[in-house]
């Protein structure tokens, strides 16, 4: 695949949902015109190194795509904490985190017998911590990027693609984000509020739940391993896949044991217990499918780990 095509695919993977094809087509024509211009000036076709130099001038794919997002959004308290370049990723991670946290808190509230409105209010109040943690993680990353703007340029257009080639090479920035998010989730689970809530809950629940909770926390912590591998050995995809498969199997086993446990329900809330049972079943099936997909990808990757492509 040509360098330009690879570059455009990387940009496209970060683009807003609306009009990505049109944006990519226009970007392609502009960059191609610049390359043609440079080739005409030199009187010969450009080498890959010269093409890469032009792509470096255009900019980091994530940064270029970020600037196409609607307006120059950012987060500022006095000074800017998260700039427009990082904001799209921040917004995506924050929305997923907040929705998940609110849903969990509302379910717990309903489970404890709170009226729906009260559970909803509690669900919204509990969002403060995930918001603060995710914002702090991204503000930290932004601070590093602001002090070292060259980090945006610390990418090599000639390196193997980062996003759309089945993750042969996962960017270190993504790995850092993943580690930050998992760490934030673990810190949240270890917070005084969650600790007290869970301790009270566990007293009400059959013994299988504390076991499953312990397993879930351990597996979430172990979920850092693939991110650490991506950070230290970005091209070691087979190792990363093997670890992901192992973790996926552990999730399937844990969820299956929860399903198989005869006595896991809460009191007489039959409908709610059924809802939880089916939710756990769906989670187990999704985990199993992910394991199968990862295993298929691992089997397809024979031979040595991919290296940087020949120049």
């Amino acid at each position: 695949m040509r360098l330009l095509e690879r570059y455009l695919k990387a940009v496209e993977s970060y683009l807003p949902v609306a009009q990505p094809k049109d944006i990519i087509r226009e970007l392609e024509e502009n960059i191609q015109a610049q390359m043609d211009d440079e080739a005409a000036r030199r009187g010969r076709p450009l080498t890959e190194e010269e093409q890469a130099a032009i792509l470096k001038l255009v900019g980091n794919p994530a940064l270029v795509a970020g600037r196409y997002h609607n307006s120059e959004l950012g987060v500022a308290f006095g000074r800017q904490l998260i700039g427009p370049g990082l904001f799209p990723l921040y917004a995506r991670v924050l929305s997923i985190t907040l929705v998940s946290a609110a849903a969990v808190r509302m379910l717990v509230g309903l489970w404890l017998g709170q009226p729906p409105i009260g559970a909803m209010i509690q669900g919204l109040l509990v969002l403060v911590w995930p918001f603060a943690i995710v914002t702090a993680v991204f503000a930290g990353i932004q601070s590093v990027l602001t002090k070292n703007p060259d980090l945006w340029n610390a990418w090599d257009p000639m390196a193997p693609p980062t996003r759309l080639s089945n993750a042969q090479w996962v960017s270190r920035l993504e790995a850092l984000l993943e580690i930050g998010i998992v760490a934030a989730v673990l810190l949240w689970l270890r917070s005084d509020f969650m600790g007290a809530l869970l301790a009270n809950l566990m007293r009400l629940l059959p013994p299988v739940w504390p076991q499953i909770y312990g397993l879930a926390v351990a597996l979430t912590a172990a979920g850092l391993a693939p991110a650490v591998i991506s950070l230290l050995w970005p091209r070691a995809e087979r190792l990363r896949l093997a670890v992901r498969i192992t973790l996926g199997l552990a999730w399937v086993a844990g969820l299956s044991s929860l399903l198989a446990a005869g006595d896991w329900g809460i009191g007489t809330a039959t409908a709610f217990n059924q809802y939880i049972w089916y939710s756990v079943l769906v989670l187990a099936v999704v985990s199993a499918v992910v394991v199968v997909v990862d295993a298929t990808r691992l089997l397809r990757r024979r031979g040595p780990e991919p290296r940087a492509e020949a120049r």
Binding site: I23, E26, L27, E29, N30, I31, A33, Q34, D37, L57, V58, G59, L63, V64, R67, Y68, S71
Partner: peptide, 28 residues
């Protein structure tokens, strides 16, 4: 102008601008 010809025209007038800034600006 199209995107890249606009970059060149601005540079010719002494106004350097990042392409990653200009192209999204045109859309906005």
């Amino acid at each position: 102008q199209y995107g890249y010809s606009l970059v060149k025209a601005l540079v010719d007038h002494g106004l350097d601008i990042d392409q990653s800034t200009l192209y999204p600006l045109l859309r906005r």
